[in-house]
Simulated assay, not measured.
Amino acid sequence: MSRRPVAQINLAAIGHNLQRVQQLAPASKVLAVLKANAYGHGLVRVAQALSEADAFAVARIDEALALRTAGVVKPIVLLEGFYEAAELPILLANNLQTVVHNELQLVALEQAELDGQLKVWLKIDTGMHRLGISPEQFNEFYRRLWQCPAVQPGIRLMSHFSCADLPGAVKTSEQLTLFQQLCSDKAEQQSLANSAAIIHVPESHGDWVRPGLILHGISPFTHQQGWQHQLRPVMRLSSRLIAMRKIKQGETVGYGANWQAEQDTWIGVIAIGYGDGYPRHAVSGTPVWLAGREVQLVGRVSMDMITVDLGQQPVETIGAEAVLWGPELAIERIAKYADTIPYELLCNITPRVDYQYITV
């Protein structure tokens, strides 16, 4: 029996979810987003499981180089682009593609003396106001990139939605309209749709879609779960029941004594806590799947342990498996109880957790 929590990663589920993306956007190529260690699932193993994707996207150059070192040969796009001109020869040597989103990057490309040309994605800020050139800069950047000797012909055009996870948001239609107006007379390939837009904004699919969260079986919408979009959860986070104790009505549990038993009951202790990545701010009542039934978290989350209410007549024994999220218990539910989003839960898994990969 493992003494460590286990994050079981179902690689077959990743393949299924990619196929679902391809069904939703059959005319588009898939740029699979693998940033932040593939959303906490393991960068290299997930990339290997996504062999049918057309290309990969990461945030930073170290992630791209890790994929190349592991033997991944598919195109890789740096979503944040390069930070300084000294990185350009590294991009060229490793066949990495870069997003351009500001003047400094454009000037660096214009001044570069490279032995070859780089594939460039030009990012336009249509309303996210994070990365990207302004609409007013678009024509100038487009012209200068076409004239730049360091840039391959055929730049790609992209933007990013700010509210696609809010179905029916006016902001989404405004961004789509602006992007289409700017690019309507351009023959270059275009990319706008993230996970939420792949599902709910089919008119935005374009030449490339950029799925991230949905590849891992999770809904990008607050009030929905992955299964509602025919997705399969990829990560199953589990641990073990390591102690049981009976407490009396009125007794408290955990730091701060902020949970008090309303009746005599049994408390179970499960070996996982915020030191493993379980959310510290999960409140009493957060569900845990324990040996085939749902029980509730009580008291504060500790660094190494959580406590659950087993009721007056528990059927579990020490060593019973507890699932914190997975096929039995949707991570979207846990995120609500912790007042956060599934992205954060996935990315916060720590090295104390044992990763296991399965293919069923």
Rank of each mutant, 00 (worst) to 15 (best):
L79R: 12
D115Q: 08
G40N: 07
V6G: 01
P153D: 04
H101K: 03
H41S: 10
H129W: 02
H223E: 15
V315M: 08
I124T: 13
L88P: 03
L157D: 00
F82S: 02
T222G: 04
I124K: 10
P351N: 11
N17Y: 08
D125I: 00
G277A: 04
M1S: 05
N139F: 01
V73S: 15
N348Q: 09
Q105E: 06
N37S: 10
G275V: 00
P211D: 14
L346G: 05
A243Q: 14
A164S: 15
A282V: 00
T340N: 10
L92F: 02
L166W: 08
A197S: 14
G277E: 05
A271I: 01
I198T: 10
G71W: 08
V315T: 12
L178G: 04
L231P: 09
D165G: 08
A64P: 07
E52N: 13
T340D: 13
V6D: 02
G299H: 04
R352Y: 07
L131R: 00
G168T: 06
L213A: 13
A25R: 13
D165S: 14
G319C: 10
W325C: 09
K119Q: 12
G326I: 11
R300E: 13
G42K: 07
D207Y: 00
K119C: 03
L106Q: 04
Q260G: 03
M303W: 11
V120C: 01
T222V: 13
A243K: 11
G268P: 09
H101V: 03
K29Q: 15
M305E: 06
A59Y: 15
G40P: 04
A12N: 08
L67R: 08
R45L: 05
L109F: 01
G275L: 03
V151E: 04
Y142W: 09
E328I: 10
Q225D: 14
V44C: 08
I155H: 00
I331W: 03
G42T: 08
Y83N: 07
R45T: 14
G256A: 14
L241D: 06
A27F: 06
L297F: 13
K248I: 05
L176Q: 01
I14S: 07
G81L: 12
W146Y: 03
I61V: 14
Q117I: 04
N348I: 00
A291K: 09
G254A: 09
V107Q: 02
E321S: 05
V33L: 09
P351R: 09
L346E: 06
W208C: 00
E87D: 10
L231E: 08
